[in-house]
């Protein structure tokens, strides 16, 4: 069972995750309007910028994060922004959305000028993670765990980051056992998705470069 402290930590993380969402206007724009390839590019860029801002606001709420070295805070956010954003977008593809929303969004991304070679692994990731049917609490905690990855480039005090990540991992592990009593491998599978995310992160830099060139 979760201790009182762990329950409080989980509530704090989940509340912060829910509080900081990208503005609904973007979702409406994506749904309602027709765009040229250029406009699509601009809209996706705006969405990406907003996602990073939301990520930073969420991260500020993680207990202890703001007490880390300032440059380490930036290194952690820089290193995890792409992964955390992909995780956040999982909601779009797994939650019950208005009919056709996910397809429309997929269509927009496919028409954005990004090469098919990059798009396929992204959608494969969404499909594989959707199969896990993650609970909202698991998604919020997994995002916090991702952000607090000690071995990101340029992080100086890795131990300080580990000290923040470990309690999150403990809560997530217990939560997985409580919510999926018949799937003892569930926690391991969640962590496996993090490995997949890391691969996407490496891919993402190439994706951006090729997109810009186009």
């Amino acid at each position: 069972e979760l201790t009182k402290e762990q329950q409080a930590l989980m509530k704090l993380i989940v509340d912060a995750y829910n509080k900081h969402q990208i503005p609904q206007d973007f979702a409406k724009k994506l749904l309602q309007e027709q765009y040229s390839a250029d406009e699509n590019f601009l809209l996706l860029t705006e969405v990406a910028t907003s996602q990073v801002q939301v990520l930073v606001e969420f991260t500020k709420s993680i207990p202890g994060f703001l007490s880390l070295d300032h440059e380490d805070q930036i290194a952690l956010l820089k290193g995890s922004a792409v992964e955390a954003t992909y995780l956040r977008s999982v909601q779009v593809f797994s939650k019950k959305m208005p009919t056709g929303y996910a397809q429309l969004l997929e269509e927009r991304i496919r028409k954005s000028g990004i090469s098919q070679d990059f798009i396929t692994p992204i959608f494969n990731f969404y499909k594989s993670i959707s199969k896990l049917h993650m609970a909202p609490e698991e998604q919020a905690l997994l995002t916090a765990v991702t952000i607090l990855t000690p071995d990101r480039p340029y992080v100086k005090d890795q131990q300080a980051v580990e000290r923040l990540q470990e309690p999150m991992l403990d809560v997530l592990r217990k939560l997985c056992a409580l919510q999926h009593p018949r799937e003892p491998q569930y926690f391991a599978r969640l962590l496996g998705r993090l490995t997949e995310l890391r691969t996407l992160n490496h891919f993402h830099t190439e994706l951006l470069t090729s997109w810009r060139t186009n």
């Binding site: 910028t49 801002q53 606001e57 956010l77 820089k78 922004a81 830099t205 470069t209």
Partner: peptide, 21 residues
């Protein structure tokens, strides 16, 4: 890469709370 500078810029501003800049 320029993409990383852009990202870092957004992060620094958001950490300082100057989203409007």
């Amino acid at each position: 890469p320029a993409s990383n500078l852009g990202l870092e810029d957004i992060i620094r501003k958001a950490l300082m709370g100057n989203l409007e800049d």
